[in-house]
Amino acid sequence: MDWWGLLLWTVRKSGRQKNLGQTIKEIREKLHQSVVTEQELKELAADERKGVQHLLQQYYRRQEKLAAEKARYQRMWHYENELREKGYKLIAGIDEVGRGPLAGPVVAAAVILPENVALDGLNDSKQLSLAKRESLFLEIQETALAIGIGVVSPETIDRLNIYQATLLAMEQALQKLTPQPDFVLIDAMTVKNSSLPQKSLIKGDAKSVSIAAASVMAKVTRDRMMADYDQTFPGYGFAKNAGYGTAEHLAGLADNGVTAIHRKSFSPVKEMLQQSQ
């Protein structure tokens, strides 16, 4: 055996000896701990058991995924950090939900976050599971400096049109912030009735942590409202479809007719009302 082979054999033997007595289950639990030392990883790398090597590979993949997620979250602070460098301190993010449904209100949220607050997994609300949205909703409530919610009814949507109603919901959300921000980041729109400096970001809920937080607050708020409406107007599936035109919702319209929360200017609700006259 040459010197390299001898060294490799010695390292592996040392690793086997140090891991001697540890079951695969125990090693799995160790690798799921928050801190695993470099020495422990070296010892596990020297363990020739296939099960240990498989767990080690899984561990490194998890670490890579966590590092990528951390980098993504840091990128989402780009606009906020840039604005703070220019002297802005209170930066609000604004987003809305509910422009497309056939029923229910349009809801907007405005959120001011503390600098560099940790909200693990925060993203565009559409990319998050129900459980994660609910968890982040509570975290944002606990950590935000200010939150404002704007709600515009189906009747007002029919009267103004959905675009103007969305702007109104955003204006309401912004006005309810205490303290008021000194800069506003908005997802793909501009709040016209405001003198505050603002920036519109296309797909801002995936680019700005403040807008992403607002998207979560708006989404969870509206989903909870629609779940309550499901109790008042059963048969449309509002708790599941949030008022969007799913097959269940359309079947409910055909069977039960138009409710008080349906948008009467939206197709096919509009056509159903015309046919019934």
Rank of each mutant, 00 (worst) to 15 (best):
G5S: 13
V11K: 15
T221A: 08
A213C: 01
Y88I: 08
F238L: 00
A212H: 07
T166D: 09
A165N: 01
K42M: 13
G237Y: 00
K176G: 06
N19P: 07
K132M: 09
A254G: 11
K65D: 12
Q74T: 12
G93W: 05
A92Y: 01
L55F: 03
Q63F: 10
T156F: 12
S215F: 06
R99G: 01
A131I: 13
D255Q: 15
P114I: 09
E43P: 10
D124I: 00
N123F: 04
L160R: 02
E171N: 10
R72P: 04
D95A: 02
Y244A: 01
G148A: 08
S210Y: 00
L55E: 09
E142A: 14
Y229L: 10
M170H: 00
A67E: 12
L167S: 12
Y59D: 06
M225V: 11
L273I: 01
M170P: 02
Y79V: 10
T221D: 07
D2A: 11
W3S: 15
L160K: 04
L7C: 13
R12N: 13
G15N: 00
V117S: 13
L273V: 00
N116T: 11
D230A: 13
A213R: 05
N241T: 06
L136G: 05
E40R: 11
L66Q: 12
R99A: 04
T190M: 14
V52F: 04
F233V: 06
L128S: 06
H78V: 10
M226P: 02
L185S: 02
Y60K: 10
L122R: 01
V106I: 09
S34N: 13
L250E: 09
G51T: 08
P101A: 03
V209N: 11
T221P: 06
V52P: 04
S129F: 05
G257P: 03
G257V: 00
N161E: 05
S200A: 09
H262W: 01
R222A: 02
E43A: 09
W77H: 09
